[in-house]
């Protein structure tokens, strides 16, 4: 016998939530392909396909109905996010390994949709970064700076078969990310202004990279407008990144990049609007979201500046994921009639 409520609004489902998030990723993905070549599109498609396939296998193994759970699009989203976090010219097996870490280990070993403690895409990324550090730092160079360009067919050939068109060296088309470049060159005792004058850097962050960041911002605005996410996480995350970077910058202007540089990194915007906002692995109370995101932002910059990895997003998110139960338990809003006042 049916129990109340007997009605639900028609257009509302997990699928719709996920689809809107995917829609939010479209602008950045297109900008990415436009500035860095079509390889990213191939990689996104491959990662999404791999995740869906792995999800189907895991659902079958765990005795869940495959169709409705594949239809929720969460696997597609995980794959897409992972692909956007990885270098676009990653070989197929690297991406597949990341997808396995994400879907099999981070998601299904923890109980599947809604049960996972760690953000699957970030588990995949972090696992790859630890295991294959060299491959994970080979980013495609912005087309404007590259000495050669790879078309769609050539990219596919490189990703799946591992060889480049005759006469082309990998160095010619890849470089380290601006964040990475900055980090390694600072270690070589060069000053900030010196480094930032190099052609890889643009107005705020990396040339081209900053446009991707802007596109993420645009996608994030869409999510905010459609109420898929609330303002808490992006605001707190970006504020924490800016503030932490700002403090370091003021401490030593010649050594630490300013807030804008960190904010204009694509990974910052991706994290603020698409990663830290993952409902399953993030805090759920309003104050909890602020703490969670601020913590992640702070750690992101800290790891970037002091750590040994090219970026700190994945680790900061995973570290904060552990704290979520604690944060949620201590940030319960005042319930009606208990003397609260946030009407």
């Amino acid at each position: 016998m049916a129990v109340s409520p007997h009605i639900l609004p028609p257009a509302q489902s997990v699928t719709r939530v996920m689809a809107l998030v995917l829609l939010g990723l479209v602008p950045a993905t297109l900008v990415y392909a436009w500035l860095f070549g079509p390889a990213i599109l191939i990689n996104v498609a491959w990662a999404a396909l791999a995740c869906v396939g792995l999800e189907a296998i895991m659902l079958r193994l765990r005795g869940y109905p495959v169709r409705p759970y594949l239809g929720d699009l969460s696997a597609v989203l995980t794959g897409w996010l992972l692909a956007l976090s990885m270098p676009a010219l990653s070989p197929w097996w690297l991406t597949l390994t990341g997808c396995m870490l994400a879907i099999v280990v981070a998601k299904h070993l923890y109980g599947g949709l809604g049960q996972n403690v760690f953000n699957p895409a970030m588990v995949g990324y972090a696992g790859l970064l630890i295991s294959f550090p060299a491959l994970m730092t080979q980013w495609p160079a912005p087309l404007a700076l590259a000495h050669a360009q790879l078309g769609a067919a050539d990219s596919a050939q490189y990703i799946f078969a591992g060889h480049l068109p005759a006469g082309l060296k990998l160095d010619a088309i890849t470089s380290a990310t601006p964040l990475d470049t900055l980090r390694t060159q600072l270690k070589q005792d060069r000053t900030l202004s010196e480094i930032l004058r190099q052609p890889l850097f643009g107005h705020l962050g990396g040339k081209g990279f900053e446009l991707i960041a802007a596109a993420y911002l645009l996608g994030g605005a869409l999510l905010l407008a459609r109420k898929v996410i609330t303002w808490h996480v992006p605001l707190a995350y970006l504020a924490a990144v800016g503030l932490t970077a700002g403090v370091f910058h003021l401490y030593d202007v010649d050594h630490y990049a300013g807030p804008w540089f960190h904010l204009a990194a694509p990974s910052t915007m991706l994290a603020a609007f698409f990663i830290a906002t993952d409902p399953v692995t993030g805090a759920t109370t309003p104050r909890g979201k602020l703490i969670f995101a601020a913590g992640a932002g702070f750690l992101t910059v800290l790891i970037r500046i002091l750590g040994g990895y090219p970026d700190g997003v994945a680790f900061s998110i995973l570290l904060m994921n552990i704290c979520v139960p604690l944060i949620d338990a201590h940030t319960q809003p005042k319930v009606f009639g208990h003397g609260g006042d946030d009407a």
């Binding site: 129990v3 005795g63 869940y64 109905p65 169709r67 409705p68």
Partner: peptide, 10 residues
């Protein structure tokens, strides 16, 4: 106890 068919094929 509500019977929620999370596992059943709908």
């Amino acid at each position: 106890y509500p019977a929620v068919p999370l596992k059943d094929v709908a």
